[in-house]
C-alpha cells in the first residue's frame, strides 16, 4: 500500500500549496458558520412554538379514536399488520341494549409502528393519527390506549346517517391528550408467584419469570 515514492521538488511544492489551499477553503467554510445562526433548536423549552403546532397536518403521531363516530366495523383491526388494535364486540337485542357495542377498543402504542394503514379503511374517519408525539410512561402496560375506559359500560356502535359525507368528530388530539396524561401512573406491582407469597427477596429475583 505505502510503497516508497520519489517526489520531485515541484511535486513537493505542489503538495504544500495544495494543502494550504484546502486549509484556506475548508477553514473559511467552517468559520463562516461561526457567524451564522445555528440551525438546531433548543427543544423543548426554548422554542418559538410548541413542536406539535409546527408539524404538518399529515404527521403520524399517536392514534386516536373518536368512539362517538366509530361504527365498530373492525376494518382498522384487520388492516393493522401487527395486531396493535384490539376490538371486542358484544351483540345486543337492539331494543334494551344496542345491537352492536364495543366492550374494548385498545391500541397498544408501545407496539404501534405509526404506518397509517388503519386510518385508510375507516369509513367515518373515527380513527386518526394526531400530531401528538410527546409522552413517557412508567410501564409498558400503561402504553395501551383504552378508548373504552370501562368494559362494563360498552360503547354502542355509531350508525352513520345515509348519504352523509362528513361525520361529526371531536377536535383531533383532544381525546389522546387526556389518555397520555394517565401514562404517568405508577407501574403495576411486580408479578408475585402463586398469588399470595410475598415479593421475592434479592437472592431469588433472578428466578422470577418475567
Amino acid at each position: 500500500m505505502s510503497e516508497p515514492t520519489q517526489k520531485s521538488l515541484g511535486g513537493w511544492a505542489r503538495d504544500v500549496s495544495e494543502s494550504a489551499r484546502s486549509l484556506w477553503e475548508g477553514m473559511s467554510v467552517t468559520l463562516s458558520y461561526m457567524f451564522k445562526k445555528p440551525i438546531t433548536t433548543q427543544y423543548p423549552d426554548r422554542m418559538p412554538l410548541p413542536v406539535v403546532h409546527t408539524l404538518p397536518t399529515r404527521y403520524r403521531g399517536f392514534l386516536e379514536v373518536d368512539m362517538d363516530t366509530c361504527t365498530a366495523c373492525q376494518a382498522c383491526e384487520r388492516a393493522c399488520p401487527i395486531d396493535v388494535i384490539n376490538i371486542d364486540l358484544i351483540r345486543g337485542d337492539g331494543v334494551t341494549t344496542p345491537k352492536t357495542a364495543m366492550e374494548r377498543f385498545d391500541i397498544d402504542i408501545g407496539k404501534c409502528m405509526f404506518c397509517g394503514l388503519c386510518v385508510e379503511p375507516c369509513p367515518t374517519g373515527s380513527i386518526q393519527h394526531t400530531r401528538e408525539f410527546e409522552g413517557a410512561a412508567m410501564a409498558f402496560d400503561n402504553l395501551t390506549l383504552r378508548f373504552v375506559p370501562d368494559p362494563a359500560k360498552p360503547y354502542p356502535a355509531y350508525k352513520p346517517p345515509k348519504g352523509a359525507d362528513a361525520y361529526p368528530r371531536k377536535p383531533l388530539g383532544e381525546i389522546v391528550r387526556k389518555l397520555i396524561r394517565e401514562w404517568d401512573a405508577p407501574a403495576p406491582a411486580f408479578p408475585q408467584r402463586d398469588g399470595q407469597t410475598p415479593r421475592p427477596g434479592p437472592a431469588e429475583v433472578s428466578h422470577v419469570p418475567r
Binding site: 477553514m27 473559511s28 468559520l31 451564522k36 445562526k37 445555528p38 433548543q42
Partner: peptide
C-alpha cells in the same frame, strides 16, 4: 482576503450574518 472569503461564503449559500440568535 480570508475575511472577505468567509463573508462571501455566507452569502454564497444565501445566508446572512447572525451571531446573536439561538
Amino acid at each position: 482576503l480570508f475575511v472577505r472569503r468567509t463573508l462571501s461564503n455566507v452569502r454564497d449559500v444565501g445566508d446572512r450574518l447572525d451571531v446573536r440568535g439561538n
